[in-house]
Design a protein around this nucleic acid. Structure first.
Lengths: 205, 205
DNA sequence: TTACGATCTTTACGGCGTCAAGATAAATTT
DNA sequence: AAATTTATCTTGACGCCGTAAAGATCGTAA
C-alpha cells in the first residue's frame, strides 16, 4: 500500500491512471485535433496498454465525456474569474467580462472547446458533464438576468437578449477557432482583444 | 459509348459514379453525422466496391472537399435568394435577409453546414472549395459594405461591424444546430423565426 | 498464508482508410 | 474491324482503430 502521495509509476499498477489518461487525452486532442484523436494514442502516451483505459472510462465516449466535464468546470472558473474582476455594481460590465472570458477560454483551449461545443463524441447525458454544462448555462442566464432585471427565460424579450448575448460571444469564439476571421486575427493580439471587447460590449449594451 | 443521357447503371461501369458518391456522402453525413461518416459506407450506398471512390476523389479528404465545395455553392444560392427577395433599395434589410438565409441553410443542411464550418476533414486549400468559400465570404463583406458605405476590410470600425454581423448569425446557427438553445427551439417554428429575425435585425440595425 | 477483488496486459475480432495488382469496359488508333 | 491504349472498377492485403474476453499481476483483507 502507498503511504505517501507520490506517483510511483514504476510498478504493474500505475498509481493514478485515470488522471494520467485525462491529461494524455487533453494533449492528444490538442495535438491531433478532435478528428485525429484516438484512444490507443492516449494509452500509449500514458505508457499503458491500449486496453487499459477501458477499465476507468468504459469506452472512448466515457473518456471524452469526463474530459468535457472537466472542460466545463474550468470554463466556469475562467468566466467567473473575469466576472469577479469587473465592477460588482455594474451588471452590464460583468456580463461583458463573462463574454470575454468565454472567448478567452476558447482561444486558450481550442481542442477542449471544440469537444465541448462541436462534438458528438461525448455523452452529454452523463451526470457530471450534464451538471457542469448546465452550471455554465445558468451563469449566462444569471448574467443576462442581472442586466435585464428579470429571469430571461420567462419572457420573450428576455430569451431574445439571452440568445443574442450567447450567439455573439459563441460566434466570435467559434469563428476565431476555425481560423476564418483572418481580418481580425491578422492584427496584433492587443488590437484583437480591443476589437473583441468593443464588439461584445456594443451588442450587449 | 453512351449515346443517350440515361444512367444505365447495370454494367461494370457505373455511369456517373462521381455524382452518385457525392449524393451518397451527403446522405451518410446526414444519417451518421460528421463523426460516424465512412468512405466505405458511401461506396456501399452507391453500390460499388470500397476502393471505387479513390479513383474519383483520391481519398476521403477529396470526397469531403468536393462535398463541402458543393455546400458553399448551395449556401451562396440560399443567401442570394433571400437577399434578392428583400427591398433592393434597403441595404440593411438585404443584409438581415442574408443573415437569415445563413441560418436557414444551416438548419436545412445541418451535416453539410458542420462539414463546412466545424470540420478539418475537408481540405480548404483545394481550389474549388477555396473559391466557393471565398465567394460566400465576399458576399458577406459586400453586404456589410453596402450598409456601411465603405469596404469594411479597410477600416477598423468596418472590421468590427463585419465581425459582429458574421458572429451573431454564425453563433445562432451553430448553437441551434448543437441543440443547445432549447429555450428558443421549444417554441413553434414561426415563433423561432420571428425571434431570429428580431435578434439579427437588432444587432445589424 | 490464503483468498479475493482491482488493475493492467495479451490476444483476437471486425471495421476503417489506403495502396497495389488485376479485371473489365470504353475510347482511340491503326 | 482489329488492336491497343486508357479509364473505370474489383479484389486482396496492410496497418491502425475500438472493443471484448481471458490471463497475469498487484494490493488488501480475511
Amino acid at each position: 500500500m502507498k503511504t505517501n502521495g507520490e506517483p510511483e509509476r514504476q510498478g504493474y499498477h500505475h498509481g493514478d491512471l485515470r488522471r494520467a489518461l485525462l491529461e494524455a487525452a487533453e494533449i492528444e486532442l490538442a495535438e491531433k485535433g478532435p478528428e485525429g484523436f484516438t484512444l490507443r494514442g492516449c494509452a500509449k502516451r500514458a505508457g499503458v496498454s491500449h486496453a487499459a483505459p477501458a477499465h476507468h472510462f468504459g469506452d472512448v465516449a466515457g473518456l471524452l465525456s469526463a474530459l468535457a466535464a472537466e472542460g466545463f468546470e474550468r470554463f466556469l472558473k475562467t468566466t467567473s474569474a473575469r466576472m469577479n474582476a469587473a465592477d460588482p455594481g455594474d451588471a452590464r460590465a460583468r456580463l461583458v467580462a463573462m463574454g470575454l472570458g468565454y472567448i478567452e477560454f476558447a482561444r486558450a483551449n481550442p481542442a477542449l472547446f471544440s469537444l465541448m461545443f462541436s462534438s458528438r463524441k461525448a455523452d452529454f447525458q452523463e451526470d457530471r458533464l450534464q451538471r457542469a454544462a448546465t452550471a455554465s448555462f445558468e451563469q449566462l442566464v444569471a448574467g443576462v438576468g442581472a442586466v435585464a432585471g428579470v429571469d430571461p427565460l420567462t419572457t420573450r424579450e428576455g430569451r431574445r437578449q439571452l440568445a443574442a448575448t450567447w450567439a455573439i460571444v459563441h460566434g466570435l469564439a467559434h469563428l476565431l477557432l476555425s481560423q476564418r476571421m483572418k481580418f481580425l486575427q491578422d492584427q496584433s493580439s492587443e488590437e484583437l482583444e480591443e476589437d473583441l471587447a468593443a464588439i461584445v460590449s456594443r451588442v450587449l449594451g
